[in-house]
Amino acid sequence: MHTFYTTIPEQTHSWRTFDTNSASKNVSTPVRGDNDFRPVFFQLSAVSNARGSSYLEWGGNKILCSVFGPRENTLRRDEFSIKGRLVCEVSICPFSIPHTPNARQQSYIDTDRLSALLVSSLESSVCIDKYPKSQIEICLLFIETDTLSMSTAAVLSASLALIDARIEVWDITIACSCMIRSENSVKMDPSWSEITDSEYVGLLTLFYQPSLNVVSGVECEGELTNLQLVKGMDSCIEGCLQLKKYIEGKLKENILKSRAEK
């Protein structure tokens, strides 16, 4: 039913190959400050036959996430458990990845790693004990990706889809990444062009539940000193709080708007 692509079939091409419009190629990206995020856009209830879904655009990522269930546990060998189970499936469109991914980009395109990451970072926020014996399925589809910030965008879209599906959660899970430079300065939400910087030391990704004040996951790349790690985590938490404020406002606006339409 579901097909997973970890490498690109030869027949498919990235849409960028056909993009002959020179203007769009030389789009000058506006200069961002170190604490600025790339624009985030999301929409809820994008998939009609899922219980809840979200569409998220963040940086170079376009993600469609849908939530199904709670349905019967399909894992037959499981023992009885009063708690529910969270299942994630990540699939990547073959045309979504840059046509010739380099070794580093290739290492990020790992659906198994991403789905394990999603389960571990979201499991602590979902009230799984309210859904005994059943499983909640999260299906994620990358329509476009820059491969760098896949995990942050994936976790954010999944947590938005869970809220749209009205699955009970303790808190919204926000993800945020930052690049650490050699002189201990930090750049939030880096893109590929910024990460190839000569001062690059490491990349830190953090999953955070702001109201509970819980860090549900950390991904770290590169060799970081203690000081750099602490600084990176602090600024990631700060970034998550900033993002949460924006997302909270948008979600509340959505609820009020849907009521006004009725």
Binding site: W170, D171, I172, S211, E248, K252
Partner: peptide, 19 residues
């Protein structure tokens, strides 16, 4: 960031999101 002291606007006060 509670729903009560979030803002003066009464409409957003009556709405909550998880957390």
């Amino acid at each position: 960031m509670t729903a009560k002291d979030n803002s003066d606007n009464p409409s957003t006060n009556s709405v909550a999101i998880p957390g």
